[in-house]
Each structure stands twice: as structure tokens, then as C-alpha cells.
Design a protein around this nucleic acid. Structure first.
Lengths: 174, 174
DNA sequence: ATCACGTTTGAGACCCAGTATCAGTCGAGT
DNA sequence: ACTCGACTGATACTGGGTCTCAAACGTGAT
């Protein structure tokens, strides 16, 4: 499965905000600080760095990759702290955890961004993001029918991409 | 997470079909044999047993639980064989693998059954199955737009169930 | 029936994402 | 500055899931 290909693109300009009042990500950082305060948790440099790193990501990323990125940037953060912080960021409504396969989990930023759903080619592993208002409407309707308060959803369509179809018959689909 | 609760119900009447020409699951078994033949694979007693066990399942089940069930029934099948066979059953279009969490993967029978989507209560872990024709139509439309041939999809809605809402404020939502 | 080849199996080693532990550190309200 | 409780990092641990390989077995051909 080639899901990782699009997950670790080049890193944009490093710009850690231990002092968040000067970063472009202020609003989200404020959300996080409010969450931490409510939960009687603390705002630490490690948590600031991890939040900052996640906000640089476009699309999906995975915890191990994020930890590696931080290490590459010269920040000493343990894997455990990365995992712990990602969980908090999810609780705070800033990230969404996504499950595609049984290898690992992925995250994506949802705060202030359009939420995505995915088309996955089972032959090439290629991933296509899309966003559908009709899907969101359908989701809310289904929730209403069952008295659920929706928090998030995952919609994954598995299939064969046009490119994979073109190569079919020749390259055996694993 | 309480996903397992509904996954290992009591086992219906044991009824292994090494000789499949006499079982109620004949049609699906025939599909499997055809698949195996096409792929130059072999029909073995282990594969027959595992297929039989999966067809007894209602809703989701997990590979480890299935292996345990088989052991309980007195069938000696290794974990490795269970995993290998489930993968083949998925390739054959009989099962669908489902990803809810990063603990493990689940499977459900799709051959000859309505496919399901799920509402998941993040507070209690309660799972509600539903089936939506509008969702299927939307899926096919999105696939058409991208030139994809759909194979399967997963639609999971995470939220708070009515019961969990009732208990809120008192029991802290983990 | 028998044969021969290639596939399958089981046992156990192995891998690795994710979690738990715990002593030392540090944030933040006073 | 103090103090208490939360946080971190190093590391051990857990448990799905996969890999390996020698022995066993299905299947099509004879």
C-alpha cells in the first residue's frame, strides 16, 4: 500500500511557536490553550512544537513520520509525547484520526479546513481527496434519525483508478 | 472501546462443510471455489472451515476471535492460516475488511447481504448498523466523476449517542 | 489409482505501531 | 519563590499481523 507517498512532503519553513502570539497559527493555538486550560492540562513547549508541526501538514500524516520530522528539525521530542499530544489535539477538535489500513493510523487537520473524504485505488494505493456537501447533509440526517450528535465521520471509497484500469491484465494486481 | 461486545455472539449450530455440496452456504462456497481455481489456488479443509465460520457471523468479527472460535469448536487451524484465508475471502469478494480503530481490523460478510455502514458512539463504543441507498448512489456518482470503478466503501459516523448524552456531566467521557 | 509438482499448513520467530511505567522535570496559580 | 500536580523521555512491554521453512497435501495428468 502506497499511502505514505503523499504523507511526508517537504517541510515548509520551520517556525516553532513556543510564544504563540507571533505565529500565523494563532487562532488554532488559542483553541488548544483553551482546551488545555479547561482540562486542567498544561501548555508545554513540546505540545506547542507538535501543534505547529501538524499545522504545516497538508492532508494526511502519520505519528511516526511526524516524530521523525521533529527530530530532523532538531527538536528532541519522544515518540510517546507525540502520540499523547496527537490524542489531545484530537480531543480539542483540531485533528481527526483516520483509519485506512491495519498498519498504522493517520491524522489530518480539521480546524479551519474543509474536511476530506477519500477515494483509494486498491491497485496503486493512490489517494484522491474530495469533499461533498451532500455527504455531510446525509450524515447529519442519519444522525438526526438516530438521535446522535455527530462529531466526525470517515468516508472511504475503495476501487480501481482509471490509470490502474489502463495497466490491467498486464501488471498483476497484488 | 467496546466494539468487541457485539462481535463474538454465541455460535450457531456447528456445521462444517469440507464437502460443500451439502451445506446451506453452497452458493458462496461455489464463488470461493471458482475464485481459487482462477487463481490457481487450492481448496483445502482449512479454507472450507474458515469460510463456514465466517458465514455464521452476523455483522462484524475479528480474525483473532474467529481463530478462537474455531479452536473452541475443536478445529485445529493456525492463526496464520486464518489471516491468510480471510485475505483470500476478501479478494474473492465474499468479505470486506473494516477499519474502525488502530487496535485491530474487522471483517464482515458482504456476499449476498446488504452492506452496512456504522454509527459509533465515542463515549460508550456502541455500534449501530445502517444501510443507505442514497449513500450508495452518492458513492457511485463520485466514482463516476473520477473514473473509478468502485469495489467497496466504508462510512463511519462518530458521535454521541442519546444514551451517552443522558449520562453526560456525571460520567466523564474518556 | 498413482504420481509429481506446486501450493498450503502450522509452529514459532519476528516486526512494529502504540501504550504503560516511573523517576525526574517543569508549568502555572498563589 | 513555592508547591503541587501534570508532563516528559527512556525504555520495557503488548499484541495484532506477517514471515519462514520444512513437512503435508490437493489437483491435474498419466
Amino acid at each position: 500500500m502506497a499511502l505514505n507517498e503523499r504523507i511526508l512532503p517537504s517541510l515548509p519553513k520551520p517556525n516553532v511557536n513556543t510564544n504563540p502570539s507571533a505565529t500565523p497559527f494563532d487562532p488554532v493555538c488559542a483553541v488548544f490553550r483553551r482546551y488545555l486550560h479547561n482540562e486542567k492540562l498544561k501548555f508545554t513547549p513540546e505540545r506547542a512544537m507538535i501543534l505547529d508541526a501538524t499545522l504545516r501538514k497538508e492532508g494526511l500524516f502519520d505519528p511516526e513520520g511526524l516524530a521523525t520530522d521533529l527530530k530532523t528539525l532538531g527538536h528532541r521530542v519522544s515518540r510517546a509525547t507525540v502520540y499523547r499530544t496527537l490524542a489531545h489535539l484530537q480531543d480539542a477538535g483540531i485533528l481527526k484520526q483516520v483509519f485506512f489500513d491495519n498498519k498504522q493510523s493517520y491524522y489530518e487537520v480539521i480546524a479551519g479546513r474543509a474536511t476530506n473524504d477519500y477515494l483509494i485505488c486498491v491497485s496503486t494505493g493512490k489517494l484522491i481527496e474530495f469533499s461533498s456537501d451532500r455527504l455531510k447533509a446525509l450524515r447529519d440526517e442519519i444522525c438526526k434519525q438516530h438521535g446522535f450528535d455527530p462529531i466526525s465521520h470517515q468516508f472511504h471509497i475503495f476501487g480501481i483508478s482509471p490509470e490502474a484500469k489502463a495497466n490491467q491484465g498486464k501488471a498483476k494486481v497484488k
